[in-house]
Amino acid sequence: MKKLVAILLCCLTLSPVMAVDIYDRDPDHTFAFFEFNHLGFSLQRERFDKVDATVTLDLPNQTGSVDVTIDVRSISTGSALFNQVLMSDSFFDAEKFPVVTFKSTKLTFGKFDDVTSVDGNLTIKGITQPLTLTVTNYKCGMHPMLRKQTCGLNATGKIRRSEFNLGRFAPLISDQITLHVAMEALKR
């Protein structure tokens, strides 16, 4: 019996400790964009400048989570007037709903421990709908300047703005919106 306990203790001390890694967004390299067709004349792309995100990765077990909060008042269209229109109660209603959130429910991993998609729930104006973000670029490694473990990705997904009570002027302005996320996150 003593031999069995000794062997078990030895195995436990030699087993690698699997840690969950937590990453916080790099504010200078994390943005959310949305793209829509404007009257058939052009595709317009607008962005939010203040995006807060926390990513948790457990690569050995291929699990993780993503939690994102977007400050609606940080919308940046290049036009102060259009910013105000989008923040008004006709669209995002920033006074009443100052944040947009995304909380993942599942991360899908590829064969090289790369994240290929993120399923979750997007909440805009108090309305929550499922959203799948397809990851188009993913990389984790040592940041060459900051000397910190860093993960980055680009992801895209589609929503219907009418499902979030943002459908004003549809179909003249496309109901379907393409979301784009560019994120870099630094390990805590």
Rank of each mutant, 00 (worst) to 15 (best):
L81T: 11
I75L: 08
S104G: 04
G110F: 03
D58V: 07
L4A: 12
C11N: 06
F92E: 04
P60C: 10
R160H: 13
I177M: 05
E163K: 14
R147N: 14
Q44H: 05
D93A: 05
F92P: 06
L14I: 10
M1Y: 07
N137E: 13
D26I: 02
L81M: 11
L186R: 04
V99F: 13
L166A: 12
L172T: 09
R47E: 06
G110I: 05
T56W: 01
V100Q: 03
T156R: 13
P60N: 13
I159A: 03
V135Y: 09
L8V: 13
K148I: 05
F48R: 09
K3H: 05
N137S: 15
T105R: 06
T156F: 00
S174C: 05
L12P: 01
V118H: 01
I7A: 13
K187F: 00
A6D: 08
M87A: 04
F164M: 02
D58K: 10
E46C: 08
L4K: 07
A185N: 13
G167R: 11
Q62P: 07
F112R: 09
D93W: 03
L59W: 02
F109A: 07
V135S: 05
E184P: 07
Q62T: 14
H29S: 11
F109D: 04
D58G: 08
V99C: 03
E95T: 11
F169M: 06
F109V: 06
N61F: 01
S79D: 04
A170M: 05
N154E: 13
S15E: 05
A94V: 05
S88N: 10
Q44I: 12
A155Q: 09
S88C: 03
R161P: 02
L179V: 12
I75G: 04
L59E: 11
D24I: 13
H29M: 15
S90P: 01
L14Q: 06
T150M: 11
T13A: 15
I159Q: 08
Q149W: 02
A6Y: 07
L153A: 11
A32V: 15
L146S: 12
I70M: 04
F112N: 12
L14F: 15
D28R: 08
N165W: 06
T105K: 05
N61Y: 12
F33L: 14
D113I: 00
L86Y: 02
N83L: 08
V99L: 01
K148F: 07
T13R: 02
L39W: 09
P98V: 06
G78L: 02
M18N: 13
F48K: 09
H180M: 14
M142W: 01
P130F: 06
I159F: 00
T123V: 02
K50W: 03
G152D: 14
D89F: 05
F41S: 09
R45W: 10
